[in-house]
Simulated assay, not measured.
Amino acid sequence: MTAEAALLAQFTALDTATVSDALDACGLPPGQGGLRPMWGRPRVAGFAVTVELEPLADEHTGAHIHTDTIASAGPDDVVVVANGGRTDVSSWGGILSVGASVRSVRGVVTDGACRDVGQARELGFPVFARAQVPATARGRLRQRSTGEPVALGEVTVHPGDVVLADEGGVVVVPRERAPQVLEAARRLAEREAAIEADVRAGVPLPQAMHDARLAGTEASR
């Protein structure tokens, strides 16, 4: 296993809530809600491959959106699509899921809507989006950029950042801070597990939740 794959495996073992708390402790933007798995309960961690879309302003559409991005993506990657939260037009569809699945891409997170969810489910390809809509992107959207920093809700995603998505939402970890955030998240997970064990053993909830372990003050060191 490469060092990159090992890093992603360690993030995949955590949930977005814990990593969001770790981002807070490290002085970084926390996770975001509203980006939901469109089928099942997948958990995906990968390095961001970024795309920004924009409304089509003329008749010339050029290449179909995402095709060049998918062609260059690989098995450690998650495609991140910036589309301004639009839910009236699809920013990801079934053929794109097929292409990404063939490339062993880990999943897609789109700040917008998607379609052809049944096809993605049959492929086992995780799609996180704000909504489903049948309206095609053809004639409505074009690709503004690929491989550039993009806005995913309130967070800026740079190519190569670690993206973790599950049923709780999405977190973005700057690549250069990933080891620090990972270590903070591990400590927080251990604290919460210990507190949960106390509660299950009969420790009163106010006493358990008052435990300084929950504050995670060590996580920022």
Score class of each variant (00 low, 15 high):
Met1Gln: 10
Val102Lys: 15
Glu122Lys: 00
Glu190Met: 06
Arg140Glu: 11
Val133Lys: 06
Arg200Glu: 11
Ala165Trp: 02
Ala185Thr: 11
Arg36Lys: 14
Thr69Ser: 06
Leu164Ala: 07
Thr2Ser: 15
Thr16Val: 14
Ala189Arg: 13
Thr18Cys: 05
Asp15Leu: 08
Gly112Trp: 03
Ala129Asn: 03
Ser220Lys: 15
Met38Pro: 14
Leu214Phe: 05
Glu196Gly: 12
Arg115Ser: 14
Glu183Ala: 15
His60Asp: 10
Leu23Lys: 12
Glu190Tyr: 06
Arg187Tyr: 08
Arg177Ala: 02
Thr12Lys: 09
Ala131Val: 10
Val109Met: 07
Leu123Ala: 06
Leu205Glu: 15
Val44His: 05
Arg138Leu: 09
Val108Glu: 01
Ala208Gln: 11
Ala185Phe: 04
Ala129Ser: 10
Leu123Met: 03
His64Ala: 14
Arg36Leu: 13
Gly169Leu: 02
Pro126His: 08
Arg130Tyr: 13
Val105Pro: 02
Arg177Tyr: 04
Val79Glu: 01
Gly168Arg: 15
Asn83Asp: 15
Ala9Phe: 05
Thr110Tyr: 01
Arg103Phe: 01
Glu183Ser: 14
Arg144Met: 10
Ser220Val: 12
Val79Met: 04
Ala48His: 00
Gly139Trp: 06
Trp92Ile: 12
Arg187Val: 13
Ser20Met: 03
